[in-house]
Amino acid sequence: MALILTAVAAPLLTPYEPLAVNPADRLLPPSLSHLFGTDVLGRDVATRILFGARISLLTGLISVTIAILIGVPLGLVSGFYGGLADRLLMRLVDLMLTFPGILLALVIIAILGPDLFNAMLAVGISASPTYGRVVRATVLAAKSQTYVEAARATGCTNARIMLRHILPNTVAPIIVLGTLGVAGAIIAAAALSYLGLGARPPEPEWGALLSEGRNYLRVAWWMTTFPGLAIMTAVLSINLLGDGLRDALDPWLRN
């Protein structure tokens, strides 16, 4: 929560502009006026990290949303209808799972070109098979329940049963998986940006910040240290949130 708040309130928390260049203040070490120092163009590193939080958190959320939008319908259809559709879709999922995520992401970026949105798309698509798998398993378990039979007996259409009776069952595991997925997606997108395949400077995305800092490691350790700590803090808190949600949503683990 604090994470999201700082991201939203970024402009209020800092007197500096994330993109304002100030050559007189270049490469200043951390001090009271610049808590995390300044970069090679005199920009305040703390400000850039704060504004970067918006980009990075949003990147994580959008990537996971893409993964869910692809994975959930896939798993739903596959689990509900079974038969040929299931076999074909699951083959596809298996195939995507045998193909390492990073390669798939790299291939997608090679096709679409390096850019932040393409990086989100790449991360989202390569994560989607996992969601498909989980939803399918949940659907298979829910399908044989009595309430589904009851719904069918009252004359519900397949679409209605799927959306109103089965989909709600998949919400809990998807929330847990999605939360943990945001953490993974932030790291993955930052990694792509770091490699120059995602967000490009001067955008203050965290991976891009680290990539900028790489060449100044010798003279300005703060340019690398603090964005990295920001990523770690964000990922750690999201992971803990995901673990907590899993414990809260899964009655089996509570016992």
Binding site: I187, A190, A191, L210, R214, L217, T224, G228, I231, M232
Partner: peptide, 8 residues
């Protein structure tokens, strides 16, 4: 992130 660990 591995690239940060590496840089550190």
């Amino acid at each position: 992130p591995i690239f940060w660990l590496a840089a550190m």
